[in-house]
Amino acid sequence: MPSLKDLRNRIASVKATQKITKAMQMVAAAKLKRAQNAAEAARPYAEKMEAVLANLTGAVTGSDAPVLLSGTGQDKVHLLVVATAERGLCGAFNTSIVRLARERALALQAEGKTVKFFCVGRKGYDLIRRQFDKQIVGYIEFRAVKQLSYAQAEEVSAQVLKLFAEGQFDIATLFFSKFKSVIAQIPTAQQIIPAQVAGGAAAPAADNAPYEFEPGEAEILADLLPRNVTIQIFKAILENAASEQGARMSSMDNATRNAGEMIKKQTLKYNRARQAMITKELIEIISGAEAL
């Protein structure tokens, strides 16, 4: 049976924890708003890029298509680009992304394919390192970065494209968490190299006007495809940032509620123990008086 002082201390410490989780939840809520705005602001660019790419890929096909679009013709070596958060305390956010990547990696390995990892974010790196240490070919973290910007995405894509140019892999898949709502984040796998174009050749321009190109179509496509990889990564990073804050918000909300419940239980226990002690003292006094 813990003493009254023990119980008091325990309640005080849970209260302190509750204050922290409450503050974290509110900070996450504020950051979530900003992250959502950033993700929304990036959307027009990505959409336009997709539309133009769909137009162009219809025009450039066959053997003269760039390798970023048509692939290397093999699928032996897979690169899994795993984007996670820099910090923990956000529920199952990091683990669910890593789990998806790990399942994919094991499935690919069972098929006899080679799997390599490229980690973006410290948490994912720590988790993947435990199992696939030797297969990690690159690692970037943004811990020092306050506001995610396009420059970070450029940094990642430059490294990925460099690996591709060196022939280190055939297919690259990006793992991140799609932001659906505060309580629902969906871990997602998206193939970025070779590029997957929505609609593909079957989607002609809506207004059906033939475009003129300057310089040629192939040159524009060669210029556009690396940019497309960058924008996909940028989109993933922003979605991830929003998802992370959403996950942190809901998990901290849970933690605050749990702490509240714990305080209630402990307070009940404390009061019961206090009353028991008072009763005991009274009995002692009364029985002492009776004995006289």
């Binding site: 133009v52 137009n55 162009l56 321009a205 207004d207 006007a209 033939p210 475009y211 003129e212 190109f213 300057e214 310089p215 040159e219 524009i220 210029d223």
Partner: peptide, 11 residues
């Protein structure tokens, strides 16, 4: 580019 320009893509 003025109004009514022909469809055109350029880097």
């Amino acid at each position: 580019v003025l109004a009514g320009h022909a469809p055109f893509v350029a880097t």
